[in-house]
Design a protein around this nucleic acid. Sequence first.
DNA 1: CTAATTGCAAAAATTTTGCAGGACT
DNA 2: AGTCCTGCAAAATTTTTGCAATTAG
Lengths: 136, 136
Amino acid sequence: MEKLQKIDYYKKLGLKITPQRLAILEYLENNREHPSAEDIYNALKERFPSMSFATVYNTLEVLMEKGLIKEIGIDSSKKRFDPVVHPHHHFICRKCGHILDVEKDFDIIIPQELSECKILDFQVVFSGLCPECKED
Amino acid sequence: MEKLQKIDYYKKLGLKITPQRLAILEYLENNREHPSAEDIYNALKERFPSMSFATVYNTLEVLMEKGLIKEIGIDSSKKRFDPVVHPHHHFICRKCGHILDVEKDFDIIIPQELSECKILDFQVVFSGLCPECKED
DNA sequence: CTAATTGCAAAAATTTTGCAGGACT
DNA sequence: AGTCCTGCAAAATTTTTGCAATTAG
């Protein structure tokens, strides 16, 4: 999407566009590492030396409310965020913590035991060793 | 398993059996709520008023090394632990955080894009609203 | 102009660590 | 007896919050 179109799009969602927010959005969009709040903070503090964690967390929360990003509960040591909100799956390396996207579709039948629940989503999480770590 | 047999079993794994460890193991075995370290601490501090978090975390780590429990990375706000170590799946309620076990077997074909990885495990995580929360 | 956002600093929540004394085998 | 474990307290990590100053619309 063109940059101006994007800003319009965000505005239509009711987001106030600040330079910090744009930078966070842009960082997320160009990053497939599923960054944590700290990753984002570190990546942007050069361009915005005065930016605080409050802004990062605040922005992440607003972006989640608007459905532009998702929190992925895979890395139990910290929250990580994903700008790819369509249903997809993940692989996490047990050694280095690297998370890879898995775009394949799986044919999952909702099991009987969850018939009383309202299922909104599911994801498959693979775990093991990534190509780099399996060599060591 | 009989209590004495269990103690023998733990000893054979090289675990030193202390009253605190036995209590933590027992608590985990009889609890299908996927408790956090704090849940365990709170549940046991009546019986062991002097017990500290260090002991809870230390014990959890030892139990994980021995393969008696697993850490489940589903609730991104805190680590939660599962004494059911055979492969199985989960449902988490987006509202109350309740985690349910899903014992069904899913036929998952390891996708092409992970062929370079060593896959050790996978789990399906459903999310939505549990029977109680979907009424509100 | 008004309401929302930022930055700061303090606090809360969760997890980890060092170490002295105590318990298990 | 020797090693491992416990408990305490302090520290490290991650996330949240209150508030005054600033900025976007």
